[in-house]
Computed example of a mutant assay.
Amino acid sequence: MKVRITSGARKHGLTRTRILTALENAELIDTVGDKQVFLGTDDQGVELHMILVPDDRDLDRMSCIHAIQYHYLIGGDR
């Protein structure tokens, strides 16, 4: 799958490389409309929560619009 990483996905301090690495082993955990929610582990062993939507610039690509370390979402260490 081709993925564009948006600036919004990087706003929590995650690099493009970390997000792409996590997407390589990510599991789809939810779909809401056209949003797909994934959990994957980056190259530092940190689990990332990522949201992808169809890219508005290229129909054959997805855009990662959100990425954050999962433990921040659940309120603790994981």
Rank of each mutant, 00 (worst) to 15 (best):
I5D: 03
R61A: 01
E27L: 15
A67D: 08
D77R: 13
G76M: 08
V37Q: 11
L59C: 04
R16F: 03
L20V: 10
I19D: 00
G40F: 04
R4V: 08
L39M: 12
G33A: 09
V32D: 08
L59V: 06
M1W: 08
G8E: 09
Q44T: 10
C64F: 02
I65C: 05
G40D: 09
I51D: 11
L20F: 07
K2Q: 02
V46Q: 13
P54C: 07
A22I: 02
L28S: 03
L59S: 11
D34F: 08
D30H: 07
C64R: 02
Q69D: 12
H71V: 04
Y70E: 15
H12S: 11
E24I: 04
R10N: 02
M1D: 07
E24Q: 13
I68E: 15
E47Q: 15
I68L: 12
T31F: 04
L23C: 09
V37G: 07
D42R: 02
E27S: 14
V37Y: 11
T17W: 10
D58G: 03
H12C: 05
M62V: 02
L48D: 09
R10A: 01
K35Q: 11
T31M: 13
G45C: 10
L20K: 05
L28P: 03
V53L: 07
S63H: 05
V46P: 06
L28D: 05
K11M: 01
Y70R: 15
I68K: 13
P54F: 00
H12V: 02
L73Y: 06
R10E: 02
Q36I: 06
E47S: 15
D77M: 13
D56Y: 11
V3W: 03
H71T: 06
M50G: 00
H49V: 08
Y70C: 15
K2I: 02
R18M: 01
I68H: 09
D42L: 02
V53H: 02
E47D: 15
I51N: 11
L20M: 08
M62E: 01
A67C: 13
M50T: 00
F38C: 13
R78I: 13
L20G: 06
R61S: 04
N25H: 09
H49A: 15
L52G: 02
A67W: 08
R10W: 01
R16C: 12
T21V: 05
R61G: 00
D58Q: 07
Q36D: 13
L20P: 05
I74T: 14
H12R: 06
A67M: 05
G45I: 14
I65A: 12
K11R: 12
K35T: 09
R18N: 00
T6Q: 12
G33V: 01
D56F: 10
S63K: 01
L39K: 11
I51M: 10
G13F: 03
T31Q: 15
G40W: 03
K35E: 14
L23G: 03
T41Q: 15
D42M: 06
G40C: 05
